[in-house]
Simulated scan of single mutants.
Amino acid sequence: MTYPDGEVVTYHNNTAGHPVDAKDYNNFLKIRGWQVVSTSQNFRPQKGDIAVFRDFQGDKRYHSAGHIQMFNGDRWISDFRQNGFWVGGDYRRHHPSFVILRFGRKE
């Protein structure tokens, strides 16, 4: 993937057969060696962590595709440089279910 700041993310993953919707990347990534990371009290994201959000009903629309984002060591990014973990107003207000995945580390 290429992001607006020019960062290219590869992480040695074959993306053939990738899901269409962001919400479906959870199992797709697990099969390829990504592990779920606990988001308990002392969670600190690490460069390369991926957050996969479920679909949910927002204030005015249903977010059917969910959302996926990656931590670049400084901030969360998706198809743009985000201002924080919660990508938009509906996400900040509703806190939809999500999972954090990290490549090759089991917790």
Rank of each mutant, 00 (worst) to 15 (best):
R93V: 06
T39H: 06
F53R: 00
T10A: 07
I100H: 12
I68H: 00
W34L: 02
D74L: 06
R75L: 10
W86E: 10
G104H: 06
V20Q: 09
S38A: 14
Y11E: 15
V99N: 05
K23Q: 11
I68Y: 00
Q46K: 06
N27P: 08
D59V: 15
H63D: 05
G17E: 11
A65E: 06
I31Y: 05
D55T: 09
H12F: 13
G89A: 07
A16G: 06
V87N: 04
D24M: 00
V36F: 05
F53K: 01
H63C: 01
N13L: 06
D49M: 01
F28K: 00
G84W: 03
A65R: 02
N83D: 14
K60Q: 13
V36H: 04
H94A: 11
V8R: 07
A22G: 09
P45V: 04
V8E: 15
M70Y: 10
S78A: 08
N83I: 13
Y62N: 11
D79S: 10
K60L: 08
P96C: 11
N42E: 12
W76I: 07
V87M: 04
N26H: 08
D21E: 13
V9E: 07
E7F: 06
M70S: 04
P4E: 15
P19H: 04
F85L: 08
R92S: 13
I77A: 05
R102S: 08
S40E: 14
H63N: 07
R44L: 10
G48S: 02
N14W: 06
T15R: 03
W86A: 10
G66M: 02
S40H: 12
P19V: 09
G66E: 00
I50K: 04
N72G: 06
Y11T: 06
H67P: 01
Q69Y: 07
H95M: 06
R54S: 15
H18W: 11
D21Q: 12
L29W: 00
K30S: 11
Y25S: 03
N27E: 13
R105Y: 15
D79G: 14
F103G: 05
T15L: 15
G88Y: 03
R75H: 12
R92Y: 10
K23C: 08
F71C: 04
K30W: 12
W86G: 10
F56D: 07
N72L: 05
D49K: 00
F56M: 13
F56P: 03
F85W: 10
I50R: 02
D21R: 01
G84K: 03
